[in-house]
Design a protein around this nucleic acid. Structure first.
Lengths: 157, 157
DNA sequence: ATAGAATTGTAAAAAAATTTCAAGAGAGTG
DNA sequence: CACTCTCTTGAAATTTTTTTACAATTCTAT
């Protein structure tokens, strides 16, 4: 599968180390399941529902059982640790993606749900400036553009 | 209840007409429930879960029964008609809001929850450009800046 | 007013997410 | 390595959220 263009900033090994560190710090354990889930998220293009992630892992490791509950549990854990973020647009359910990618924004097709990522330096800078103007200390931001992707524009005509 | 500052572009009456037109066009009926749901969305500051919306309507009209199923049904209808959009970030579930507001830009203080709204022409234009570059037909957008407002910056020192 | 079709609330069902619990596995200690 | 303590797991049960079925009701166009 094609890796998303918004390349992960971190090598997998680094990410794994980060995860392990957080686990240790909180007296939690590093398990095979947790690693498999992290790896699957890393390798995919993100935007996976818990169900889809579970399915993906089962396909990759038919020999090892991973319960759906563990997927949910691990996703919350990863979200609490700021390693993944969740988002949901339009009709489909909540999706998860690695939060360690280089920052990016989303363009969402309201028809088919396709999500495209993009980064625009100009907007990034401008946001910082707006925050400053309002005496606001910016910690994070998110932006979404809604509309119709090329395909759905055609199909709707 | 206080009206949101991000003023709706449309007067309620206009919005209602638009809704009625869509209904008629699709041989659907205009009902009291549908109107109540649209009105509640219009008056609120948006970002309501179906449950919350249902509760709100029940509070406003204790005399009239509106089933939760009808709320769900109407929300999908409104979403299909591009009158509302749904989105969800972080831990909480899916939320719905009117899709007819002119701008959706918020600056949110993660400490006290204060929401400041802003519009920035440069960003607006830039967004349009990005959409075009991706062959995307932009219908709407939203942007959030998270951080600390002036007050909370002080209090946190 | 009437008829025909869509809509509603209720309750049941399905889907999604969370919790319980006994068995199993990781990590630190010796 | 063995031991123990605690966390984690899968499975199943439970809860929560969303959708569906259906008979009664309401709307819209004559």
């Amino acid at each position: 599968m094609q890796k998303n263009f918004s390349a992960n900033t971190l090598e997998y090994e680094t990410l794994l180390e980060q995860f392990k560190k957080i686990l240790k710090k909180n007296a939690l354990k590093f398990t095979l399941q947790r690693e498999m889930i992290l790896k699957a998220l890393y390798d995919s293009d993100g935007h996976l529902t818990p169900e889809a992630l579970h399915r993906l892992i089962q396909e990759r490791h038919p020999d090892i059982k991973v319960g759906i509950a563990t997927v949910y549990r691990t996703l919350s854990l990863l979200e609490d640790s700021d390693i993944v973020t969740s988002l949901s647009f339009g009709a489909q359910g909540k999706k998860y993606e690695l939060g360690t990618k280089e920052h990016h924004d989303h363009m969402i097709c309201t028809e088919c749900g396709e999500i495209t990522e993009f980064v625009d330096e100009e907007i990034e800078k401008r946001q910082e400036k707006i925050a400053q103007e309002h005496g606001f200390l910016m910690k994070d931001h998110s932006m979404q553009i809604y509309g119709l992707c090329q395909n759905c524009q055609k199909n709707n005509q």
